[in-house]
Amino acid sequence: MNVLNEWAFVGIFIAIAWVFPALPIIIARFFGPKKPNAIKLMTYESGVETVGDTWVQFKIQYYLYGLVFLIFDVEMVFLFPWAVAYNELNFFAFGAGLLFIFLLTDALIYAWRKNALEWS
């Protein structure tokens, strides 16, 4: 139960935290003018009328960075408990961690060699 009480704080925090940014926005609603017109509501792209659809296909490069990040994200998750327990572990554990990181570094080197980390 002790652990859950700690998390009850977080739960309430998550609920309350929305109030603080929402409050000024709601207050501003009462004080600010409201005179919308067609030109004001246009998409602002440097004063030029917007051409075509915004939601179009984009550079695949962004996706590749996302993929590489995802792999590292999962790796980091495994390393957190390893780091926490590290002081109680022996050299074998260091070796296990080393091997784990080494295998993933391979992936990084592969991505590097295949130019997946290249911007253009």
């Binding site: 926490v84 327990a85 572990l89 074998f92 554990a93």
Partner: peptide
């Protein structure tokens, strides 16, 4: 989490 870490690298 500490126990988890120990279990992860225990032979």
């Amino acid at each position: 989490t500490r126990e988890l870490g120990v279990a992860l690298v225990d032979g």
